[in-house]
Nucleic acid binder design. Structure first.
Length: 882
RNA sequence: GCCGGGGUGGUGGAAUGGCAGACACGAAGGUCUCAAAAACCUUUGGAGAUUACACUCCGUGGGGGUUCGACUCCCCCUCCCGGCACCA
């Protein structure tokens, strides 16, 4: 009795025991901790780091991280030195909101969630280099986030100006665009207002062209590249200047359709347009009545909430200024209107209206009784006056009523008229972008304080860091800074004056530590909570020593994550932010020689070899990381412009058709599954769910089946292997499997890789015995998915060292004809069978006949029949007619 | 409205232009058992046919096209999902 019990116990598959056993051995032996200074084949396998939510890592996170890990393990077995770090993106509005909701201080909240998160991440059995973990809220980390901010400021790429932001009056906080859903607050559903507040911006727009230009060379999926392109949204067109009748002023409008300019009948300005401001200031004279009218309209616009704006749909509103601009082509006096459908920050904030060939212009013109002049005739040949919106010809056609353009196709006409306008001197070809400058400041608590100091006294004297450190000419104030080409870092006069009084916090005073304050909740005054703490903001001006104020806003979380991948490689270096060439390290005088040495030895890991993350980040995060990298390159810190050699977007796991969230009550906690089945089963199951790029709806209906599979593998391979020779058929199956799985792994097609493992299992299970070669190859192929199981059985089968650093099995192509031409066998014109012959033998009719007669698929159709004719169609297929 | 992605059994999903439905879940039947669970075996797209699963027909949202051959490539339509949205 006792004997059998002991025996069955020995045979039991006990995932918990082997998981604990191997995880501690791996960590002790540093199996996954590469020597960063001496990598021969560096492979930086990076997943987007998570923000640690209090609910812990849900199944979607496990799905992603174990998927990325399977790829990393595969690469490690292929002989690469794989670096797979992990960290937490703990700063930011998400974590702060959660802290508020649970009445916890963000600092304590972070401490608690960090623990839980790292515990869960360890339980996944992922091959993390734990020594290099980082957290964005660690002062040792954000010291460098602040340094980065200062570098951008000094390069003339950071500026502060007043800007309208989303404001929720109920939550008393500024909201990011993505927190505004249909004009209402994401959390409390109250209407969001626009408020003008002073904000810090990064001048990402001056990099728009390069960010766009590099896209085509990125080894990313087309989908993500397209998203980047669309977001940057470059449009080429022309700026046209119109003289304002009876004044000395002129107006510049941007248009992509100058071809229709003979049909231009009005001008519309954004409410915030400088001409409007000048009208109100009285710099341009107009009747007091008119001024009142305009003021009223502007008030209306401002009071209109975004909800009202949206419910009004495309309904147009506007007010006539009383001024006209002369259309140089037709001498037509175009009335100048103000309307809120014109956006200040696109083009020049002013547009020229062609109601006949733009639907929005048509709506505006019909509402206010403006003239509609047809200048394009479409395919239908209709030349009648345009009276309904369906007639508005936007896309294609030929010019009419347009003087020298008559009869010309609109695309040719566009070029022709641009030439004309440039020649006459009132037009200039330009590009306009959808991309806006990056709003970096947040009037919140939970982020890195922006490391800037404002000195009132210096501001009055028009002094700033720039006046004290750089020489400026009289008219154009360009910032000359190491590496940055002056065209990109050129400041406008406006930006220059705005910078008056501002100084970066001196390097030796970094980090500006985020103090532990009691009242950290957003205030709703447009100021950050730190503004209530004089201890924090009262400082001396770094320049003149008089009392000055520290900036109390914190920076956007996207800044934390825009450079973290660099820091992973230098978490042990206190005085240098990331790996860089030896010369660049000289810019860090505080760094010891060993640190400089280490930083320069680690550059071979960059840029990131493989970056895997959610598709939802395929626009903003990636763009910000690209921008930051490009700036660091221009400043001489990095040798490359693009941070991620390869980017792969994984799918998202949802539950019941919705994103998992606690409020929806559909969060799946992976802990219980791991406890019940062991992490290897969970890892395999998640991979098998579907394509990694697709994600999907989580269901656990098949997890039992996967557990059965794992147990079967365990019992099959646990018993000693036989010493018999591999049969040719078994050998063929093995090599086919190795080939298929290797290709699948390379393409991150994990679900089909596992299917192949199952198919191979089915055939192994039918064999009378399994050889050592089969057994060990099987374990290697399954190791990326079930690392603990594979390691345990590898040890049992006498494998050397850890399976995870053993070479990936090699596929021997001798068994399969690699390059083939497919032969189709037809009987009475109907396809009966296909088979393959080597392509170099495709003309050999005798071989084709022989192959056909030996091929199991063909033989039944050919038996007793004679091949009458072999038709060879060059470059296509070969037909065998019977 | 614009830009992406997609539509294959009861379900998740496989198929360099070459035997559609791999692999798995579920289901049905069976073996073992007093019984159940577990495990194992068989069947499983639909319709039909035969002594014969050694057969035939239909079938990848709908319609056309290219091809010896189309889930796959091209055009039109339709429905679903995601992103952006008055961008001149």
């Amino acid at each position: 009795m006792k004997k059998t019990e002991a025996k069955s116990k020995k045979n039991t598959y006990d995932p918990k025991a082997i998981t604990l056993k191997w995880q501690s051995i791996w960590e002790k032996d540093g199996v996954y901790q590469p020597d960063l200074s001496s990598a021969k084949k560096p492979f930086f396998n990076l997943m987007m780091f998570p923000y640690p939510s209090a609910e812990g890592l849900h199944i979607g996170g496990i799905y992603t991280f174990t998927g990325v890990d399977a790829y990393g393990r595969f690469k490690r077995m292929q002989g690469y030195d794989v670096f797979e770090p992990m960290g937490l993106d703990g700063f930011g509005i998400h974590s702060e909101n959660h802290a508020i909701k649970t009445h916890t201080h963000p600092i304590e909240h972070a401490e608690r969630t960090e623990k839980n998160f790292y515990r869960q991440l360890r339980e996944t059995g992922n091959a993390y280099a734990w020594e290099n973990k980082l957290e964005t809220y660690d002062p040792g980390y954000y010291r460098w986030t602040q340094w980065l901010f200062i570098e951008l400021f000094k390069a003339g790429l950071a500026y502060k100006k007043e800007s309208p932001v989303n404001f929720c009056p109920s939550c008393k906080t500024v909201l990011a665009d993505e927190q505004v859903i249909d004009g209402a607050c994401e959390r409390c559903s109250s209407e969001v207002e626009k408020r003008n507040l002073e904000q810090w911006f990064f001048k990402i727009t001056s990099y728009a062209d390069r960010l766009l230009g590099n896209v085509k060379d990125l080894n990313w999926t087309d989908k993500v590249k397209l998203a980047q392109k669309n977001w940057i949204g470059k449009k080429t067109g022309i700026n046209i200047s119109y003289k304002i009748t009876d004044t000395q002023e002129s107006l510049t409008v941007f248009t992509t359709r100058p071809d229709t300019n003979f049909g231009a009948t009005f001008i519309a300005l954004a409410p915030e347009h400088p001409f409007v401001t000048q009208l109100l200031d009285g710099k341009i004279t107009t009747s007091s009545e008119k001024r009142k009218e305009i003021e009223n309209y502007l008030k209306d616009v401002q009071n209109k909430s975004s909800i009202e704006r949206m419910s009004a749909g495309r309904a147009k509103s506007g007010v006539f200024t009383g001024f006209y601009a002369e259309n140089s082509l037709t001498n037509y006096q175009m009335p100048i209107w103000i309307s809120d459908f014109v956006l200040l920050d696109f083009g020049t904030g002013a547009l020229v209206g062609v109601p006949a060939h733009d639907k929005r212009d048509f709506e505006f013109a019909t509402k206010f009784g403006l003239e509609i002049k047809r200048v394009v005739v479409g395919k239908d040949g209709d030349t009648s006056p345009i009276t309904s919106i369906e007639q508005v010809q936007e896309e294609a056609g030929n010019m009419i009523n347009s003087g020298f353009l008559d009869g010309v196709d609109i695309h040719k006409a566009t070029e022709k008229i641009m030439d004309h306008m440039e020649e006459k001197g009132y037009g200039e070809r330009v590009s306009s972008y959808h991309l806006r400058d990056w709003l970096i400041s947040r009037q919140r608590y939970w982020g890195p304080p922006i490391p800037m100091i404002y000195c009132e006294s210096c501001a009055e004297e028009k002094k700033s860091w720039f006046t004290e450190n750089r020489h400026f000419g009289d008219s154009v104030r360009s910032v000359e800074y190491s590496g940055i080409d002056s065209g990109q870092a050129r400041m406008t006069n406006e930006e220059y004056w705005i910078s008056a009084g501002w100084y970066p916090v001196p390097d030796e005073q970094l980090p500006v530590v985020l103090p532990h304050i009691e009242d950290y909740k957003p205030m709703g005054t447009g100021k950050a909570p730190l503004a209530n703490y004089p201890d924090f903001y009262e400082v001396k001006c770094p320049h003149c020593g008089k009392p000055a104020t520290r900036e109390t806003d914190v920076s956007d979380t996207f800044l934390d994550s825009a450079w973290y991948f660099l820091r992973y490689l230098a978490t042990d270096l206190k005085n240098i932010p990331f790996p860089m060439a030896k010369e660049a390290t000289e810019k860090f005088p505080a760094a010891a020689n060993e640190e400089k040495e280490a930083a320069s030895e680690r550059t071979s890991w960059l840029p990131v070899t493989m970056y895997i993350g959610g598709a939802e980040h395929s626009v903003l995060h990636l763009l910000y990381a690209r921008f930051t990298t490009m700036v660091l390159h221009d400043l001489g810190y990095l040798s490359f412009e693009e941070p991620f050699s390869k980017f792969y977007a994984h799918g998202l796991i949802i539950k019941d058709g919705a994103k998992m969230s606690k409020s929806k009550g559909n969060v799946i906690n992976p802990d219980e599954y791991i406890a019940k089945y062991g992490v290897d089963t969970v890892r395999l199951y998640l991979r098998f769910l579907g394509p990694f790029s697709q994600g999907g709806d989580f269901r656990d209906s098949g997890i039992e089946g996967m557990h059965r599979f794992v147990k079967r593998v365990w019992f099959l391979l646990e018993s000693p292997a036989s010493n018999t020779e591999l049969s040719p058929e078994a050998k063929r199956i093995m090599h086919q499997t190795i080939k298929g799985i290797t290709e699948d792994m390379e393409a991150l097609r994990f679900n089909t890789a596992i299917a192949k493992l199952m198919t191979w299992y089915n055939s192994l299970a039918k064999q009378p015995s399994i050889t050592k070669e089969e057994s060990q190859n099987y374990l290697k192929l399954i190791a990326p998915f079930a690392p603990h199981l594979a390691e345990e059985l590898w040890e049992k089968s006498g494998g050397k060292g850890s399976i995870h650093v053993s070479p990936w099995p090699v596929y021997h192509p001798t068994f399969i004809i690699e390059h083939t031409v497919t032969i189709a066998v037809q009987i009475n014109g109907k396809l009966r069978a296909t088979f393959a012959v080597p392509s170099d033998k495709a003309q050999d009719k005798a071989l084709i006949e022989k192959t056909a007669r030996e091929d199991v698929n063909v033989i039944k159709f050919l038996e007793g029949k004679e091949i009458r004719k072999v038709i060879v169609i060059p470059g296509k297929v070969v037909n065998v007619v019977i």
